[in-house]
Amino acid sequence: MKVIELNRSVTDSNDRDAEALRRELKEKGVLLINLMSSPGSGKTTLLSRTIQDLSTEIRIAVMEADIESAVDAERIEAMGAAAIQIHTGGMCHMDAGMTRKGLEEMGEERAELVFLENVGNLICPAEYDTGAAKDVMILSVPEGDDKPLKYPLMFAKSDVLVITKTDTAPYFNFDFEACKKRVQRLNPRIRIFEVSARTGEGMQAWEEWLKEELAAWKNR
């Protein structure tokens, strides 16, 4: 036996898969957005509203990754977007291989904007590249403004933070300024949106960003 020095990441094979998937999706002009958050942060509600507002202009599809059940996919299909439910079989996160399989099953040519709703969890999904063009994390007001202190990696690696359920702020003592300051310390280049999918407040800025990203992805 010989000793081989490696110094390679344990997720090296996933990182390479993810890079290849990103390249393929770029060629096809499909913008994949990886949505990460804890359970109950309002991902599906945010998506339902986004689909409702944008589906006349953009062909949207959603991949729902859950350990069990198909409730979310049913809610999304009711809004008029293609949806596919991926069961991760007990795994706490999505990786590039699972994402690719989901896209193939769905037929990614059916959409130009695909949302991957990752497993509800602020820890593991942050560590695995799914091949998405952008990583978006959602933090809902009821979860509290201290979350950046507890789950720094998720905030550090996301391109965008969407703070949801802003209409509930009066009940939860959520300090927006303190939260943003904590997030920006971890990640100075992060974009932050504040929305309420229920009242519609702030939705326009988020949707404009999606449109700009899609246009840029197709042109670049």
Binding site: L6, S13, M91, C92, D95, C124
Partner: peptide, 18 residues
């Protein structure tokens, strides 16, 4: 469960290397 995920990825990385 987290450990299981890392082990699966580690095994895949080593299979590729092999």
């Amino acid at each position: 469960m987290h450990e299981m995920g890392i082990v699966l990825h580690l095994a895949k990385t080593l299979d590729d290397l092999a």
